[in-house]
Amino acid sequence: MSGMVFEGTAHTYGRDVDTDVIIPARYLNTTDPDELAGYCMMDIDGDFAQRVQPGDIIVAGENFGCGSSREQAPVAIKAAGVACVVASSFARIFFRNAINIGLPILVCPGASEEIDTGDTVRVDMEQGVVTDLTSGKSFQAERFPEFMQEIVAAGGLMNHVREQLK
């Protein structure tokens, strides 16, 4: 994730966005990322999948991705073209899943209260800085522990495992 800089339109949500609204269970009878992307955020933001543009950024409050362990949730977000998810905090399984599948995420308390849907947001993953280019405000994100940076550097967990098993 280091070295990556994203710039896109913000889609802002409140706290406790659960994985059931990110990808409702009625669509879990497939693992196809593109199909899942078509239902992304459906139960919280009905036409998100139609509105979202490649490179857009999701900004949310505390406990993003709570509930079910379904990895289809970060998979759907990534396949929908979302570049990065910035949240005040993440539920732990969603956090692991995002790291494991290579969906960039940042823990950035306070950003969601200040960033509005439609604002243009710039995310510098290496510096951990989130800037709302529309309002000019900047926010400092938390750094990932080194342990997780290794997984990210390996290109996801399975690559990391493959190295281990060699």
Partner: peptide
């Protein structure tokens, strides 16, 4: 503890 599918694959 619960994990996602990739963690489980690993």
């Amino acid at each position: 503890t619960g994990v996602g599918s990739t963690d489980l694959a690993a």
